[in-house]
Design a protein around this nucleic acid. Structure first.
Length: 225
DNA sequence: GCGACAG
DNA sequence: ATCTTGTCGC
């Protein structure tokens, strides 16, 4: 995967916001995806008092949901955690990990929001635009937006609304289990994004992509102690 | 000014 | 995200 080099990672808050507003114009919110054979899952963990970042990318075969390749890398913190500027903190190690992956995925599922963001440019959109690849934002909690509790049945969902626009979907992936927050990252529609997340979550609350990526970073975390 | 706030 | 024990339940 080739990265579209557009900006440095060591910048200030003001410049980061300008970059988001500029790149947000490139986000595509309709289905523009090929046949999906491989799906990438991404996750980042922190260690050493949050001084070190550990990122993992796992590639799953879409039909079996089995991992065919995975990579784990370490990096140092270059940007503080600021709600709304999350990608400037976690994207550097994630890109570093993708550079080592040989199997090219046709879809990426991120641990965080896509357009369900103040400037409609969360981590999933940022990653999607930089690699020009279909991406889905899948958060465990909400960043912003209003919604009503979706039905308790798996597959139920209710719109996540902000500024009069639907920016995502609150989706229940398992009966009677807390829902997750799905939003368009890039090159995919919200309905299609939810279909994929349900397909990726046959047994647990979170999709296999993030679950497996999460297991990888934790494993690496323990081994480095 | 006050409260909210992805990981 | 991470700091942290036991505990209720399938």
């Amino acid at each position: 995967m080739e990265t579209l080099i557009t900006h440095p990672w060591n910048l200030n808050e003001t410049d980061a916001i300008k970059i988001q507003q500029e790149l947000a114009l490139k986000v595509i919110t309709v289905d523009a995806l090929p046949q999906i054979h491989y799906i990438a899952g991404v996750d980042v963990a922190y260690s050493e008092q949050s001084e070190k970042l550990i990122a993992a990318v796992v590639i799953l075969e879409s039909a079996s949901l089995k991992a065919v390749e995975s990579v784990v890398v370490e990096d140092t913190v270059r940007f503080p955690y600021i709600p709304g500027l999350f990608s400037f903190r976690e994207l550097p190690p994630i890109i570093k990990a993708f550079e080592k992956i040989k199997t090219v995925p046709q879809l990426v599922v991120c641990d965080g929001q896509g357009v369900a963001h103040p400037r409609r440019f969360g981590l999933a959109s940022h990653l999607g635009v930089l690699f020009d690849i279909p991406a889905i934002g899948c958060g465990k909690t909400r960043l912003l937006g209003d919604y009503t509790e979706p039905d308790q049945k798996r597959g139920s969902s209710s719109p996540l609304v902000d500024g009069g626009a639907v920016i995502g979907n609150v989706l229940r992936t398992q009966d009677n289990i807390r829902p997750i927050y799905i939003s368009v990252g890039h090159r995919i529609s919200l309905p299609t994004a939810c279909e994929w997340i349900l397909k990726l979550s046959p047994k647990y609350r979170l999709p296999e992509t993030t679950r497996q990526a999460d297991q990888l970073v934790r494993k690496h975390q323990k081994e480095s102690m």
